[in-house]
Amino acid sequence: MSKRDGRIGWLFALPWVFGFTVFLLYPVVASLFLSFTSYSILKPPRLIGTANYVELYHDPIFWKSLSNTFLYVLGAVPLGTVMAIALALLLNSKVKGMAVYRTLFFLPTLVPMAALGVLFLWIFNGDYGILNAGLKLVHLPLPNWLGDPAWSKWTLILISVWGCGQAMIIYLAGLQDVPVSLYEACEIDGASSWARTRAVTLPLISPVILFNVIMGIIGSLQVFAVPYIMFMDGAPARSTYVFTSYLLDNAFKFQRMGYACALGWVMFVITLILTLLSMKIAERHVHYEGG
């Protein structure tokens, strides 16, 4: 490659380099610096060492929002994974009009989060919601989904399933890659449908499962829009107050940008640890073709 080609290459890459530096690299480095300062946005940041991180350790709302977020991840990721795989398996069968079914199951993921939040406010309404109307028909207890701290987190977890269409499509792509010959071999051996799924399908799509689980963990740790719209300020009793809401409040409502940056970096470290942990666990359970 000549020097001139190199220069032209850089020229073409320049918009990305500019965007990356200004809109990602600089804010990331700045937020790390600001996390060690007291910064109210209008006054210049003042270095306070590790005081923000020490305060985090003693802050009951930090722990509350963190535990709410973890409980959400623990509920939403497994439930979403099971639902997405189950739907993908169903949509991988050879049935007439399958393209229509696939579209229908993917469609909910396209609904904007704000509209979704308002829609679910009515579905989960304790008195007039369609969900409790259904439960009443089968004589089951009628929870106060939105107003009872014991149920509100479950409401969020159940709503998360609505968006599993995205993962479902990726699983579906993974399922298309499973060699048909293996299923034929299973059939000759007289394996049941469940045995085929357990011994062939799941191991062969395990890299896809790993990818989706990691993306699911990262996405769930950042859950924001639905709880923000449906539950005012994390009500009831901060039972739905998630980490990102606390971060946002500190940055813009409480004017504590330095503290918010510290929260952001804690979340980054947690996300990194959970991702590495998932990769480590996956070493023994994920099967790569040719690996």
């Binding site: 406010l121 309404n125 304790g126 008195d127 106060n144 939105l146 107003g147 009872d148 009831p236």
Partner: peptide, 11 residues
Amino acid sequence: GPDAMTEFQSA
């Protein structure tokens, strides 16, 4: 009632 404050009003 424990749920009335939120349930009743949300309607």
